[in-house]
Design a protein around this nucleic acid. Structure first.
Lengths: 214, 214
DNA sequence: TGAGTTCTGAACTGAATGATTAAAAATTCC
DNA sequence: GGAATTTTTAATCATTCAGTTCAGAACTCA
């Protein structure tokens, strides 16, 4: 039972757990996973080595925790960008612009923890998490498309699942370009153009959805 | 047949330099850059440690050499895929399918040395090389679009540069998904759908009443 | 065959790295 | 104020790693 009014008990921590995790995220974003040493984390997070181990665990655990927090925060932003605007075009544009903004935010190295660095981590748990996150994001976009479909905003032959995964692919491409140093301004423009692209009506190939693709 | 009348001089090498470099590529593809140790390279390339250093140099140099060879080989394939087919749709589809095939080729871990691992390497030379390679690939696609434009294959308001970079972004997305384990079959289908997408005619935007659209 | 040349295998070294330990410091509870 | 509790600072340990050295093996040339 936790006594709410009382401070924990012994010597208070000199760091904020959440902030430290964010700092860890910055470190991993700038140096990848394997490129990061414990000393990098100690320096970047402002947490002493023993505290690091006792509070956060080893490097792998720190990464997983940082990744989870990151995905949660960014996922919420993405969902907001996706479901706030009234038109589907603005939703998709917002989603992609949000990805660009995340990938080019100041104070962190350009890139994305979830898209650029996590997929390279040789760890089963991380891999599963990334796969789930990607699936969730795709489902989110697809759902937004479905809403648009129901609202008659897109034509009846609009290939929802294909377009949804194309939105994700375009987002990944934008993010990778961000990491390579492409300026935010350029990427924001490209995000808008990408939104225009994925909302183009498909060629009239006729019949409903008995045959997808091609 | 080797014209050189004189075989090099002393003890012949027990490995083929080119094959060893390809083996190095496989090692880097499967473990990234920072995750690779010299022992990994020694084991994977079948080259003794001292030979490694004397013939290839240190890890960074090996990576750069592997990357250059890789980019040259894959770049040639991409150009071929892009400029062989008669229709621009098949060109773009071939380009993207080729990217998928490269990213899912057997015998190597899924992914792409140039797209997935090189951008994360914290090295100026590598970064420059990647940027140049991306620019070159984009220019290639744009040129193919331009050819199509000249042939009247795409409408006059077709936004060539935007579509070219979108093709690259989609390719990056497909490649990243390959690395995450998406099956080749799925990706090949998506590559085709992506080709269809980027060849859709843009919306006519010179229409008099511009209030209905967006 | 023997001298000269180049490569290979194994051992070696210094530095970096991951992780732990022990004692000092800061705070709450009594 | 003092005991109990928790964090922090500093030091330590074992391991791994990058890069080198050296003796010997494999080859060419004369």
């Amino acid at each position: 039972m936790i006594k709410n009014s009382a401070r924990p008990r012994g010597r208070p921590r000199s760091f904020d757990e959440k902030q430290a995790l964010e700092a860890a995220t910055r470190v991993f974003r700038s140096k990848g996973y394997d490129g990061v040493t414990i000393d990098d984390l100690v320096a970047g997070m402002g947490v002493g080595r023993p505290s690091l181990y006792s509070v956060f665990g080893d490097k792998r655990t720190i990464f997983v925790r940082a990744l989870r927090a990151y995905a949660e925060a960014k996922g919420a932003l993405a969902a907001k960008a996706l479901f706030s605007p009234p038109t589907v075009r603005d939703s998709i544009a917002g989603f992609l612009r949000n990805a660009v903004e995340t990938a080019t935010e100041e104070g962190s190295a350009p890139g994305c923890l979830l898209i650029c660095v996590a997929p390279l981590v040789d760890d089963l748990e991380v891999r599963r998490f990334v796969l789930d996150a990607v699936a969730a994001a795709t489902a989110l976009v697809e759902r937004r498309f479905r809403d648009a479909f129901d609202a008659g905003e897109v034509p009846s032959n609009f290939p929802l699942p294909a377009r949804a995964s194309q939105v994700l692919d375009l987002g990944r491409g934008l993010t990778m370009r961000a990491q390579l140093g492409t300026p935010r301004k350029v990427l924001l423009k490209d995000a808008d153009q990408a939104a225009d692209l994925v909302l183009l009506p498909p060629r009239e190939k006729a019949v409903p959805d008995s045959q997808a693709g091609r």
